[in-house]
Write a protein that binds this DNA or RNA. Structure first.
Lengths: 228, 228
DNA sequence: TCAAAAGTGTTGGCGCTACACCCATGT
DNA sequence: ACATGGGTGTAGCGCCAACACTTTTGA
């Protein structure tokens, strides 16, 4: 067999959504040439573990988080992306509701944190590029698959989804049309609960209809939201 | 640095279109446990070469072909996908007009060939799965990006495109509606030439308007072809 | 004159966009 | 009473689906 000196790693672009902001999960590098820079959670794949197992494991180890949604994003393999050693990294896209987990820095005592997507610190390696790809994918995907609910509480006022879409797509949407369309899919169920907002009128809380949700995941959605 | 014993390879799912058939480019394995089975062209990445360079090189070496279109498809990394050794393979999707190249088996004297997509021989490793993923991607992509022209001659009768779409999407389309829609994008230019068919009425030949084509590549298309 | 494929328009319906005011609550 | 966000209906238009006959050529 040929000799080859390339390492295989995984990295995770994990998005969260809190207070009308799209957030990204980062850890602070403790070792290496990029010490003290923030980076995507991730690491080397073990010889006997599948790729998605590797991401899941690394995330758990480094941040304490277990994802609600995970898909393969893209593989980054440019020769010069890490200058110590050739590393090919399979990037994954993950979604999680940050409120559902407490961040716990790993035993290596790295720092872990959520950062607003439009105020990221400088990132290690080519992680900037990976994040860009992840964001692009998220924006596309949310327009044709009912993901994005993974980012919210299980019961939420309608305005949460509305704002989530506006935030992720980064454009204003027409509230009435959006609501009509989304409701027409039948994936939202009213609960009998009511939110108690800080100000303004209380809102009904909604929950997912998981059956319809699964069905839609197959068939595909379609949103092409208008400017206001 | 950690010790890790994983090899990195690339594989190419290359589609061609000839005589109303979607074809796949395969090579016959000469060595290894899967000797004499057909497989996707591909091979190990060199330490100092980028991933896409690697695919391009392997394709050239193994088949003599240089692609008109190439994009990263998906990375396959299951532990057990190759039982000799752990191999992570980054699969690429390629399109080419088979008429534009003569297949030349490599110096290792492998066999090379085009196979109709619905009559593939048994494939080595998990290549069946990779092909499935490639086909799925092609079917999606062709509905929202003006790819697919890479598969045709530079000048072609309209019916070529029409058939290509039917073949790839594997469903009948409404000829009138399809033509209207496609023409409305302005990416096809009439030439003054006329095809000389084996039978039936001669047809005008078309060519691409490369400018519009580039523009569309950005904005995205939209086809959602109906059953007849 | 027949077979084979090319070429071509219209209509109806559906879904999307555009758009603005009232309601329920807390302060 | 005011501020804050929640909740709601309609009309017009554009786009898409459905649909079939005529034309050109070669045999």
């Amino acid at each position: 067999m040929i000799s080859q000196n390339i390492k295989v790693a995984v990295d995770a672009v994990v998005f969260g959504y809190v207070e009308r902001q799209l957030q990204l999960l980062l850890i602070k590098q403790k070792y290496g040439s990029e010490k003290n820079k923030w980076a995507l959670p991730g690491g080397f794949v073990l010889d006997h573990e599948d790729l998605d197992t590797a991401v899941t494991r690394e995330l758990k180890e480094e941040t304490g988080i277990t994802l609600a949604y995970l898909e393969q994003l893209y593989t980054f393999g440019a020769v010069k992306r890490d200058n110590r050693q050739r590393v090919v990294s399979i990037a994954y896209l993950g979604l999680i509701n940050p409120k559902k987990f407490k961040l716990t820095a790993s035993t290596d005592a790295l720092e872990v944190g959520w950062f607003a997507i439009d105020a990221l610190p400088p990132l290690a390696f080519d992680h900037q590029e990976i994040v860009a790809k992840g964001l692009e994918r998220l924006q596309n995907k949310i327009s044709y698959k009912p993901i994005g609910f993974e980012l919210l509480n299980t019961e939420f006022p309608f305005s949460n989804i509305e704002n989530l879409y506006q935030t992720i797509l980064n454009k204003p949407i027409d509230r009435r049309n959006f609501r009509k369309k989304l409701m027409s899919f039948g994936i939202l169920e009213e609960t009998d609960k009511i939110s108690k907002p800080e100000s303004g009128r209380p809102a009904k809380l909604f929950r997912f209809n998981t059956k319809k949700y699964k069905a839609l995941e197959q068939k595909g959605f379609h949103f092409e939201i208008k400017f206001a």
